[in-house]
């Protein structure tokens, strides 16, 4: 479960490349690839610095018009949980 209090950050070992129809994350430690859409790209870019799921959702809502806030929050929670579970992102343990 992800919560507001926890800060997340992109795994610095993961490479990121933008292609015509989305972006590709590659975790060289696990040899896993994750293809992400435009929304996923925005989340990934937000994770360049420590961010909570709530913070990411707020940033997304600010950038997108007419999006249901509850749905965005749920989608961010699920996507960050996937990134976390597959080693593409981690929990930030430094000082916020």
């Amino acid at each position: 479960m992800t919560t507001e209090a926890i800060l997340y950050i992109a795994n610095p070992d993961v490479s990121y490349r933008e292609e015509e129809d989305g972006a590709i994350l590659f975790n060289p430690d696990t040899d896993e690839v994750l293809v992400i859409n435009v929304t996923g790209q925005l989340v990934w870019q937000a994770l360049a610095r420590p961010m909570s799921c709530g913070g990411i959702a707020a940033a997304l809502i600010a950038q997108c018009e007419n999006v249901p806030q509850d749905q965005v929050a749920q989608d961010v929670d699920e996507f960050v949980a996937e990134l976390l579970g597959r080693g593409f992102a981690g929990i930030y343990e430094g000082a916020a």
Binding site: S15, Y16, R17, I24, F26, P28, V33
Partner: peptide
């Protein structure tokens, strides 16, 4: 290569 996200 790393900057271009070459994988292997």
């Amino acid at each position: 290569l790393g900057q271009l996200a070459v994988q292997r």
